[in-house]
Design a protein around this nucleic acid. Structure first.
Lengths: 240, 240
DNA sequence: CGATCAGTTGAAGGCTATCAAAGACTGTGG
DNA sequence: CCACAGTCTTTGATAGCCTTCAACTGATCG
């Protein structure tokens, strides 16, 4: 049954057909569990060890010398690291597990990409598109941080998370899991923890969202979309 | 003499040796002049027409439906558009000329990239590295917009511009040309025009910079670097 | 039960935006 | 040469968003 497919395949197959050989290759990858706070990517070396996130959340982070830090990008189940077709600068950022995570070592996938293996054409193309979509989220972050208010930023991020989790089947009618602290969301949005908390309260008071511990539900996505004000999807075909 | 080399070659050769065939190919490209305000990239089509900027400034811009707009990246002489090895999401942003510009149509270069032409290996590699560096500037922008104050953002951008213009020989002891209005800089930094003007004044009062119409000089780069607080270079070899 | 952590709320202040108007600079036409 | 309009820049005053500091709640855990 379809439910048995790992989240990595669910995600990659949204970008195109995967051959049986592709699916076999991905299913062979060996999962590994790592605790929250561990570094998934050590950036000192020249080559980033590629991996795919199967469960849990991680983040690409950049720290300033004085202690400030910006979460540049949130990594959700199904997202991959180091599988871009050509060197991609985002892969040089430190990656930190925000929750306990399960990752698979994706070295064989990268080998297929580098060899431009003809029998894995679908897989290679899917990885290329996945990397492209991640770049779109980076661009969205620039506009979000540069032009939008706290309320708008939060609405935009919630919609982005909803979209991304939905395509790997992690959204239910009761919302989706948000397994990180408000501190993490604040750092992703360039806001203080206190102000994020207030903005969340405002959305709750308006009935736009509902919060339970570790979980969020978008009750009025139309209100959020109107506030977010610019496209949150990273469709492969569109210009964005 | 070396001064006869076009800025496109100056820029690309900072990323590695170019063969005589590479130089010949780039020198063959035909320059075209376009007025300020013209769109260098129409994003509706699937393929971005690749080009290299020889003189003048341009910007990758994203507009919000309500009129706000963010300058995502400034393009300086020597920068290229659409010459990444693999599709790069930044190339889907609208590109607008901020000043009158001279560009060359770089279709032959892209052909060499796509063909992975062995006789243009140096050129292909240089383009790859140039695209990589542009991505680093996008990442820098995220941290700048998310974590830094107006003064810090401005210091950081000025240092970045200095670095980038220096490597194509456009920095003199008397500073470098800044051929755009404060409005443009403000939109790149996510600040209001008025506040940018005040921040510039503050830097002038401190003797950190000197402004003449269309030109800026960094008098105390150490002060600016201390304020900017995180690396502004996009060195190919470093992790950033 | 004390301790720790995530979340919440209040109060005060600072950084930045907005509104408004006045000075520079440029190019044009009389 | 000057008047004039237009754009760019600067400055003042005011308001608002957001941050910081601080204290308090509630939950989890040894």
């Amino acid at each position: 049954m379809a439910g048995a497919r790992p989240v990595s395949l669910l995600r990659l197959s949204t970008y195109g057909e995967l051959s049986p050989a592709d699916e076999w290759l991905v299913k062979q990858l060996k999962p590994r569990t790592m605790p929250a706070g561990s570094r998934l990517s050590a950036l000192e070396s020249g080559d980033v060890p590629p991996c795919i996130l199967l469960s849990g959340w991680a983040a690409r982070v950049r720290a300033l010398p004085d202690g400030r830090r910006q979460i540049v990008h949130l990594l959700l189940p199904g997202d991959s690291i180091g599988l871009g077709a050509s060197p991609w600068a985002g892969d040089r950022l430190a990656v930190v597990a925000l929750t306990p995570v399960i990752v698979v070592d994706a070295e064989p996938v990268r080998d297929a990409i580098r060899a431009a293996s003809p029998e894995h054409g679908g897989l290679v193309e899917a990885c290329r598109r996945a990397a492209w979509c991640e770049q779109v989220y980076f661009l969205n972050a620039i506009v979000r941080l540069g032009q939008q208010t706290a309320y708008e930023r939060l609405a935009h991020l919630l919609l982005e998370l909803h979209t991304r989790l939905d395509c790997v089947g992690l959204v239910s009618p009761k919302g989706f899991q948000l397994p990180v602290t408000q501190d993490v969301v604040a750092h992703a949005l360039g806001l203080s923890l206190v102000h994020l908390s207030r903005t969340l309260r405002q959305m709750r008071n308006e009935g736009a969202i509902a919060l339970q511990p570790g979980r969020v539900q978008l009750l009025k996505p139309d209100i959020l979309a109107a506030a977010a004000n610019f496209p949150h999807t990273a469709s492969w075909s569109e210009a964005g």
